[in-house]
Simulated scan of single mutants.
Amino acid sequence: MKAKKKSVLLRLLGIALSLFVLFGLSVAGGLLWWVMKKPGGTALPLDAALISLESPRGKALLASSTAKGDWPRLKRHFVPQSKRSFCGVASSTIVLNALAVRSPKITQETFFQQRGKGTVSFWKVLFTGMTLEQLAKLLQRQNIQVKHFHADRSTLKDFRTHARKVLTKERVFLVVNYARKALKQVGVGHISPIAAYHKKSDKMLVLDVASHKYPPVWVDTKMLWKAMATVDKESKRSRGWVHVGVKSLAIRKRPQKGR
């Protein structure tokens, strides 16, 4: 009798374990499907502080901007992020193709082929995205000039000066890492290139790679700065920006505050 009860108990435990494994596989499969799925959905409304490039005012700001040397190349090579966590990957492929560093063009699928030792993997980025430092390291594998700046180790004035200098040139780019919440947008950390600067209004044009959610937007420089000065929970450091260019057009990195 005891042996029979033991047999039944073992059978029930086996069934329970099988169900648990099946449940785990189902959850893992669902998560993998979600992160691999191409992002989409309805465009979200913009806060009144942001100006869509697609609006008459947004177009007028671009037309009157004198710091938009990067705009034609960025527009030509723009691609939306292909996966939910690929804002950094999409931004990287845009600027790398604008620099014409490789032929054929780099895609979000081939970007990690040049990853190299000491940089983050495709799977890590797929599930958790990338930090400012990880973005810089991945770009450095492409034999180009890359400098990254943490907002809390610099100043708003430094950022504005740097951006104006970069955006008046061609084949030199800025990619910003910021918190969406600080721009009154839905989401957490995000990465996108800067396409232009408008001096009179002191606004910068963020070429949002999550184009299924938001269009390119003009943002007050101070507002963007505050969004970059937020702390990234993974790195425990502030966000910031990355300077990308061919080595002959490099901008010398200034000493940062606190060093």
Rank of each mutant, 00 (worst) to 15 (best):
A3V: 05
L9C: 11
L10R: 13
R11N: 13
G14C: 15
G14Y: 13
G14K: 11
S18D: 00
L19A: 15
L25H: 04
G29F: 10
L32R: 01
W33D: 08
V35G: 02
T42S: 03
L46A: 13
G58H: 07
K59C: 05
S64T: 13
S64F: 10
K68C: 03
R76S: 12
F78C: 00
R84M: 13
S85V: 02
F86M: 06
G88L: 03
I94M: 05
P104E: 04
Q108I: 00
Q108H: 04
T119N: 14
K124Q: 13
L126Y: 10
F127S: 09
G129Q: 09
T131K: 04
L132V: 03
E133C: 11
L138E: 05
Q140L: 14
N143I: 00
I144L: 14
V146G: 07
H148R: 04
H148W: 10
F149M: 09
T155H: 07
D158P: 08
T161R: 10
T161N: 14
A163C: 15
R164D: 09
R164Q: 15
L167N: 04
E170I: 07
R171Y: 02
V176H: 02
R180F: 10
V188F: 09
I194C: 03
Y197V: 12
K200W: 05
S201N: 06
D202Q: 14
M204S: 11
L207I: 01
L207K: 07
D208G: 12
H212N: 15
K213E: 15
P215E: 08
P216Y: 00
D220S: 13
L224H: 07
W225C: 04
K226I: 02
A229H: 13
D232L: 01
R237T: 07
H243L: 05
L249A: 13
R252W: 09
Q256C: 09
